[in-house]
Design a protein around this nucleic acid. Sequence first.
DNA 1: GTAATTTTGTGATCTGTATCACAATTTCTG
DNA 2: CAGAAATTGTGATACAGATCACAAAATTAC
Lengths: 226, 226
Amino acid sequence: MKTNECNTCAFKSQALIRLSEEEIATHSFNCALIGFIKGDAIIRQGMLSTNVAYLRKGLVKIHITGPYCEQIVRIVKAPGYLGLPATFGDKINQYSVTAIGDSEVCFIDLTTFRNLLRTNAGFSYEIVLNICSIELELYNRCANRSQKQIRGKISDVLLEMADDIYDADDFNLPINQEELGNLIDSSRESVSRVLTEFEKDGIISISGKRISIKEKKKLQMISSRG
Amino acid sequence: MKTNECNTCAFKSQALIRLSEEEIATHSFNCALIGFIKGDAIIRQGMLSTNVAYLRKGLVKIHITGPYCEQIVRIVKAPGYLGLPATFGDKINQYSVTAIGDSEVCFIDLTTFRNLLRTNAGFSYEIVLNICSIELELYNRCANRSQKQIRGKISDVLLEMADDIYDADDFNLPINQEELGNLIDSSRESVSRVLTEFEKDGIISISGKRISIKEKKKLQMISSRG
DNA sequence: GTAATTTTGTGATCTGTATCACAATTTCTG
DNA sequence: CAGAAATTGTGATACAGATCACAAAATTAC
């Protein structure tokens, strides 16, 4: 990898902007860019990791092996750090990350990253902001997931896809219904039933993996009513 | 508040240890210690906040108003920061914190805190570690909460109380059964039924709020079986 | 110490959704 | 393009836990 590539990277994080010339050179030198296709494992729960992962491009799911089954914790769109919380404390990954769209990930050497954190407060500050916003999101997701029932949770996901991930009311679902179930804590069958129901009610239309939101207002209502 | 009190504080955080003499003096100067008794609101969701809260002593619950009801996200034992994620981004508190035992909280001026983060990388690094470990805990809590059923979730909470909070197999439940229900996403009635059942099975014994764990092994088994 | 309030216990009933079982599609793969 | 594999649709059934409705106990307040 060429030195200073990170400096000119079009997808660099807010945190990188805070680095000095010299620091960013070190960063570049200790950083490897790897491409993944849909379905590839980027980070594996239980494995030793000595890198921080930064999702430069693409879409991934973060999932953990729960007591009973695999659970998708959240869907992350580029750009953003992936392995932050997993990399501190012990070096064993506490969760898995899998590409659900073609993705590019930079793996930054953990020691290098830690040194940057320890020596550059601006960098460190941006990382704090980043993690804090994720924590808040998790609190809310937790509350929603356990309080709403299926229709509400599916509406949530559809709206999130449209508004946060694809910026379009028309998109291809990046996961199958089984995974959608894992994401909202329901069974595959129930997901199927609700999607069909939404289509019958004219709220969405489905063809294969393609979903078009027809009546966003209704979806928002169902989402907020729970 | 006397200057440099933070310096000699017996409960100071790992992060404070990284500060210089001068920095800790600034910290002390911009920091107020306030006592709370059980039931007092420490942080209120939706309110403007210009402080970072550090729980010096005591026990609190973090809870958010969900779409349908109040949900307890986690129980926090001193020492530890309370308002970290809430204080970044907008200044509106995204959740509430309420004392469930007599507590002492230091409120640190947000601007001062941010300056420390921005200028002292060691401080900032410790804060990152702190938030990361909470994030991991949340991932797991999320998975547990939605995959286990009531008996498993109640076992979890009892074990957490015994092992992490009180370091004793004999303790007073700091919350009532209604709140316990909020914490594990169940109804008050179901909590009551399961506790009674556990007592009948000789796993625990109850008298008022006092709980003694009699057969920890069984509890651990129920917890892991879900 | 008695009344008021909060918390807990427990039965009866109701309900959302998991599960099972298969059929129908769609998507991969050689 | 055919056969295999994965994904989806849908009915029937089962069940964990919510909810309702009180009674009993325990706390708190005056």
